[in-house]
Amino acid sequence: MSDEKARLLRSLRIDPAEVVAEGRRRRWRLPLLLTVFLAALAAWASLSQLHRPETPKALAEAPPAKPPAPVAEPAAPSGLVASGYVVARRKATVAAEITGKIIAVPVEEGMAVEAGQELARLDSSLAEIDLASAKARVLSARAAIESAAADLKDAQRILERTRNLQARDFASQADLTRNQAHADMLKAQLAKAEADLALADSEVRRSEQTIDKHHIRAPFAGMVVDRSAQMGEIISPLSAGGGFTRTGVCTIVDMDSLEIEVDVNEAFIHRVAPKQRVRAVLDAYPDWAIPAEVIAVVPTANRDKATIKVRIALLAKDPRILPDMAAKVTFLAGAEVGGRN
């Protein structure tokens, strides 16, 4: 057992001679590796110098060439672009001038109407009764005029006979005075009857106009874009507090009065002038260029947006152009506007 332990201890012992030899081998290995690396680096540098193209001396000493001057390209026609909306210069919400109940509305949205065409009809039964009464008063006034004229004619004949009798002392002055007063009274009654007839005639005309107001008509030719009233509703020119009374029957737009209104930044308004050609494009039809021109620059500015409103006329009329459509316009300087696609 002791021999085995001694053998193990001897195997674990470090020989000083081997340690010294290993240290010597490590000391000369590092310089050798460094020398080999430096030699390889020098060889690579020499090869790079051999493969570099030689530059002629004259070319090397020549001053650097000046960069070529930029060529001025033709300026592309630039246009001022603005956005806005299609608006109608003639647009009206038609309402009644009197209060009444609607008994008919013969129009619908999208219907074309002519000037004077009936849009709605109100109940006119009471107005027709008033018209009949006014016509009766006219007949009564005419009869009163005829009666007063006959009485006056008889009184004037009696007055003339009394004058002749009084001139021959067959009638007293009192009879002459009494007959004169009676004739004057009848003349006044005739004048009153004529005034009553004129008043009755005016009442007839007023009643006829009142009946006509029960027929709500279109003020101009156009297109019905909104119908707000229904049969059986009460309509009035004044709005009631409860909200159960209509104030308008329908809205009409004159489609021939459509134009575009855009807001132009006041910094670029000097580039816009009346009669200037414009190319308009609707957002709904981006491939359709509509020829247009400037009508006027509205002489007022929007302080909040720093813009000025410009009115633009559409030179091409088309049923696709509708009120309140969004549009973009390009103001052209001497350029022609493309045709319709």
Rank of each mutant, 00 (worst) to 15 (best):
D3A: 11
L9E: 09
S11P: 05
R13P: 03
R13F: 00
I14A: 06
V19T: 08
V20D: 06
R25H: 10
R25M: 09
R27Y: 13
L30R: 13
L32P: 03
F37G: 03
L38G: 13
A40Y: 02
L41V: 11
A42M: 11
A43V: 15
E54R: 15
L59P: 05
A62E: 12
P64Q: 13
P68F: 14
P68Y: 12
V71F: 10
A76R: 10
S78F: 14
L80I: 01
L80P: 02
G84N: 04
V86M: 08
A88K: 08
V94T: 04
A96Q: 03
T99R: 14
K101P: 03
I102D: 10
I103E: 14
P106K: 02
V107G: 13
V113N: 10
E118K: 14
E118M: 14
D123I: 09
S125I: 02
L126T: 09
E128K: 13
E128C: 05
D130M: 07
L131S: 13
A134W: 07
K135N: 13
R137W: 12
L139P: 01
A144F: 11
E146H: 10
S147I: 09
A149Y: 10
A150M: 04
D151N: 12
D151E: 12
L152V: 00
A155N: 02
R157W: 06
L159F: 05
E160A: 09
R163C: 00
N164L: 09
Q166I: 02
F170V: 06
A174C: 00
A183H: 04
K187H: 00
L190W: 12
L190Y: 15
A193K: 02
A195H: 03
L197M: 08
A200E: 02
R205T: 10
R206M: 12
S207H: 08
Q209K: 10
T210Y: 10
D212F: 03
K213Q: 11
H215A: 12
I216E: 06
A218K: 04
A221V: 01
A221C: 08
M223T: 14
A229C: 03
G232S: 04
E233Q: 07
E233T: 01
E233F: 02
I235D: 03
P237T: 02
L238G: 07
G241R: 11
G241Y: 12
G243N: 03
G243H: 00
R246V: 01
T247R: 00
V249M: 00
T251R: 01
D254V: 02
I260V: 15
V262K: 03
V262I: 07
I269N: 07
H270N: 15
D283M: 05
Y285N: 05
I290W: 12
P291Y: 00
A296K: 09
V298L: 13
P299W: 07
P299M: 05
R303A: 15
A306C: 06
T307N: 11
L314D: 06
A316C: 04
K317L: 10
R320P: 01
A326S: 11
V329H: 08
A333R: 11
E336V: 14
G339E: 05
